[in-house]
């Protein structure tokens, strides 16, 4: 298995946020985690990226265990994250933001290649390359955050709430981008509150409630599941 998370537990101080979470992802698939606020989705993502240390459990990625590694080692191993709330560096230019996304890449030729690729995939970023990231609109910042996460050339991309606060027409654009990334061979883990959007494009999905995995299945199956429809799709 490309990504295999087993019995992951994590928390903040005395509060446990994840209880024995086990999740798998096949290479080249889109796997989604849905759940309400505070379900532990972002905590899970931060554990995968090494920013938060899990208290127990294992994370196996591409044939090696990565739990306990420092974040920059995990990025270098091919796992990168586009965090919730975009978190671009507001006082740096678009180009600087992208260059920093490629900091784990040793070969400057590869970095400039990927920079060109980012600009051709996201023409709006090319137009605004010398503008400060803080001056971009929300949708543009989301594009920048995704493009930045792709600069390290990840085999696995974690996307945390990429549709948050965006106009529906921009959300559609984000969906297209996610599919394109998957078609390019990168595995995607997508965390979303917009459950309908997430389940529509996911190959496999997990439902997280208060730190527990309560349900899992194919995206298309969960879309038809009665409890999911009631709790997360509002129908």
């Amino acid at each position: 298995m490309f990504l295999k998370v087993q019995d992951l537990c994590a928390g903040y101080g005395r509060i446990q946020a994840l209880h024995n979470v086990s999740i798998e992802a096949e290479k080249g698939s889109i796997v989604t985690l849905i759940g309400s606020n505070g379900a532990g989705k972002s905590t899970f993502m931060m554990c995968l990226s090494g920013v938060l240390r899990p208290t127990s459990g294992t994370i196996e990625f591409d044939g090696r265990f990565i739990h306990g590694l420092h974040p920059e080692k995990i990025v270098a191993a091919g796992l990168s994250q586009c965090p919730e709330g975009r978190r671009v560096w507001p006082k740096m230019t678009v180009k600087e933001n992208l260059e920093m996304g490629g900091i784990s890449v040793k070969d400057p030729g590869v970095v400039s290649e990927r920079l060109d690729m980012a600009f051709s995939n996201f023409p709006i970023l090319a137009e605004r390359r010398n503008q400060l990231a803080g001056s971009l609109s929300g949708g543009e910042q989301q594009m920048l955050a995704i493009a930045r996460a792709l600069m390290s050339g990840p085999k696995l991309l974690l996307l945390d709430e990429p549709s948050l606060g965006l106009a529906p027409i921009i959300v559609e654009k984000v969906v297209e981008i996610i599919k394109k990334i998957r078609d390019g061979g990168t595995t995607v883990i997508l965390v979303e509150q917009n459950a309908f959007m997430a389940l529509s494009i996911a190959d496999y999905a997990y439902v997280l409630e208060t730190g527990h995995v309560v349900l899992s299945g194919k995206g298309s199956d969960l879309l038809k599941d009665d409890s999911v429809r009631k709790s997360y799709l509002g129908v």
Binding site: H70, P83, M92, I103
Partner: peptide
Amino acid sequence: GKSMRAIAQDRTAAELAGINVR
């Protein structure tokens, strides 16, 4: 220098981008 600025503006984002913060 750019890494320093990135950390000053958002440390978690810097870690996620693969900057060796330490």
